[in-house]
């Protein structure tokens, strides 16, 4: 275990599925060769097959303490990076009569293919968005799997990083990661994944996905910082819980489960006695702690409804954006650089 652990908590009641986080990550980290199909941050509609397709049934994680080899997700499972006729439309003088079109074979899957489909039946259909990054697990299956000790869990903050100089592209980590959050770079021949924006973190700047999120969904900070949002949401109020805890990796990304809208009864009246998002589905994703987190949320809402105050709801509302980042609130524009890196360090 690392000395300290950085973590992220995401409030699924607030995520609007805008993919700003996804694009923030893409433009910052995955524009190089071989990275075109990578989405270190992905946001999918639940219930749904997700990214990579059907990842929840691909295996991996721990069983009786032993890291398991699951499936290797294919490029098609992740969704190939489609090529468009940008040249023709933007620069070919045909902007009025030619449409942007995917070139080559018509795809039958992509990284956000089942967007907004969700589940349930009218009038009680439902969906919500689930953003995912690497969970920088406390017990990372990827680290356990690698025969070359190419994956390091940093002592100082628990960030899990693949050392591309040691990686030889064997992909045992991809088999082992139960969240299927590792990609293989076919140009460089190495595995790559979310780096928790460690170069930003080292300068006191929160992750790009978190800072850019217009929904104020994402909280960042050390797990043991009792004044920070992570400690309060995870340990103190227990409203933020890990995804698929049964995978056994002890993830450090936490979710406030979605309460969802009210359910209609047979007569078309609102029925508050049972949730629209089936408990079984919440339990499938988050286990019993997910159900308990929802109960706390509803209780706190009721408290506020009756005129009371709720610390946890105030945190989740995120009145002050800068307070979401557990001290990692430096404006990246204040960093001055020379050729050796930042000169006014955090």
């Amino acid at each position: 275990m690392s000395k300290r652990q950085l973590a992220m908590a995401m409030d699924l009641n607030k995520c609007i599925g805008c993919q700003t986080c996804t694009i923030a990550c893409k433009t910052l980290w995955t524009r190089d060769e071989g990275m075109d199909y990578m989405w270190w941050n992905s946001v999918n509609t639940q219930p749904g097959l997700g990214t990579p397709r059907n990842w929840e049934n691909m295996g991996g994680g721990f069983k009786d303490g032993v890291a398991q080899a699951g499936q290797l997700p294919t490029k098609a499972d992740f969704g190939e990076a489609w090529q468009y006729n940008h040249e023709e439309v933007f620069y070919g003088g045909k902007g009025q009569n030619v449409h942007l079109q995917i070139q080559g074979e018509t795809p039958n899957w992509g990284p956000n293919w089942d967007e907004d489909q969700g589940g349930g039946t009218y009038p009680n259909s439902y969906f919500f968005y689930l953003p995912r990054i690497c969970n920088h697990c406390t017990n990372p299956a990827c680290v356990a799997a690698c025969p070359r000790k190419a994956i390091e869990k940093r002592e100082e903050d628990g960030i899990v990083l693949i050392n591309e100089d040691r990686c030889r592209g064997y992909r045992f980590c991809m088999e082992a990661c139960p969240y299927k959050k590792i990609y293989f770079n076919h140009s460089k021949g190495v595995s790559q994944k979310c780096i928790f924006c460690y170069p930003r973190i080292e300068q006191g700047v929160a992750n790009a996905c978190a800072r850019q999120c217009p929904g104020r969904v994402r909280f960042v900070g050390y797990r043991d910082d009792e004044n920070g949002p992570i400690y309060k949401l995870v340990e103190k109020w227990k409203v933020a819980v890990p995804l698929h805890p049964e995978y056994g990796t002890d993830p450090n990304v936490f979710y406030v489960p979605p309460t969802g809208p009210l359910r209609f009864d047979e007569n078309g009246n609102l029925d508050p006695t049972s949730p629209r998002i089936p408990e079984d589905y919440i339990r499938h994703l988050f286990g019993q702690p997910g159900i308990e987190a929802l109960a706390i949320m509803l209780e706190e809402r009721e408290k506020v409804r009756k005129g009371g105050k709720s610390e946890v709801l105030d945190i989740l509302i995120a009145y002050k954006w800068s307070e979401m980042f557990g001290g990692f609130d430096r404006d990246p524009a204040t960093i001055e650089w020379d050729n050796n890196g930042p000169i006014n360090k955090a």
């Binding site: 032993v66 398991q68 080899a69 299956a141 356990a144 799997a145 025969p147 045992f172 088999e175």
Partner: peptide, 10 residues
């Protein structure tokens, strides 16, 4: 002789 349990079991 495989270096990780994941490899040995799989």
């Amino acid at each position: 002789m495989q270096p990780t349990e994941l490899i040995r079991s799989s």
